[in-house]
């Protein structure tokens, strides 16, 4: 049988292809599973234990368990990096680019599949942990509080959003650097450690720029409005999106016009 005459590159086809690619490589779905198992396990432990979340200082934050989410985010950054760098590493990127020579769709499909999966899993994780919190009752301020109560909802939403944000950031960073080790070192060095180490070494007038690094902005977003320093949640979202646009634009441009 000859392939049907309707066969051509479509957005839906590219999405299916990326979906297949993700689930057919063990290291990728294991990284994904580890990210969420880690988030669920650590946050679940903190909720049941209650010592940190229910203490005097933290007890008034109903969504305190989302403080664990940056750990899951880190694992998802690595997943994002691996999803694209492993194609460069083993040459299968050439197969991908021959199948979809305009290239843009491949990057968009990868981003869409990863974002969709991590968003769904992130929401499920948060709902499960919220339920556990209600059962455990270890955080006084959360007792009987609806998930959709503004005091709860925005914090949970902001915390959950860092999970897909991490995977997207990793994907774009990996596409930029095209090498897993380099991308991961770059992430740790520039985005994770530099904002903690460099402010001590730089003149005070310059340390303000670190407030605009992605993790700093993500922390503001996770606060659900409780933190307004150095800027509010709306600004934090703009900062986070700006990072994606700049990183994504550069990665897209290089993918589109660089030889593979």
């Amino acid at each position: 049988m000859r392939p049907t005459s309707t066969a051509r590159i479509t957005a839906w086809g590219l999405l299916q292809s990326e979906w297949t690619k993700l689930w057919s490589v063990r290291s990728l779905w294991i990284t994904l599973a580890v990210a969420f198992a880690l988030t669920l396990g650590l946050a679940g432990y903190m909720i049941l234990d209650g010592e940190m979340l229910g203490g005097e200082e933290a007890g008034h934050i109903p969504f305190g368990w989302t403080a664990i989410y940056p750990v899951g985010m880190l694992a998802l950054v690595i997943l994002g990096v691996l999803t694209i760098t492993n194609e460069y590493n083993n040459g299968s990127v050439r197969t991908s680019m021959v199948a979809a020579p305009r290239r843009t769709g491949v990057l968009l499909a990868k981003a869409a599949v990863l974002t969709l999966i991590t968003t769904v899993l992130g929401v499920v994780t948060s709902v499960l942990l919220y339920g556990l919190l209600q059962i455990a009752g270890t955080v006084p301020s959360a007792d009987g509080l609806s998930l959709f109560d503004p005091d709860m909802f925005w914090g949970v939403l902001g915390g959950t959003a860092v999970l897909p944000y991490g995977v997207l950031f990793g994907l774009l960073l990996g596409g930029l650097v095209r090498n897993a080790a380099a991308a991961i070192v770059l992430y740790f060095g520039l985005f994770q450690m530099a904002p903690e180490i460099l402010p001590a070494l730089l003149p005070a007038s310059l340390t303000g720029i670190f407030d605009y690094m992605p993790l700093a902005a993500a922390n503001v977003m996770r606060s659900g409005g409780l933190s307004t320093e150095p800027y509010g949640v709306a600004t934090s979202i703009i900062v986070l999106l700006a990072w994606l646009i700049v990183l994504g634009g550069t990665t897209w441009w290089l993918l589109k016009y660089r030889d593979v």
Binding site: W12, G13, L14, S17, S24, E87, S92, T95, V98, A99
Partner: peptide
């Protein structure tokens, strides 16, 4: 096209490698 035979992810099965390529064009 076959430019180099090793343009394949070593962790992926032959079936899934081909399936992922076929899906881009919605081939059955």
């Amino acid at each position: 096209v076959m430019l180099d035979a090793k343009a394949v992810h070593p962790g992926r099965s032959a079936y899934h490698h081909l399936l992922a390529v076929a899906q881009t064009h919605r081939l059955p």
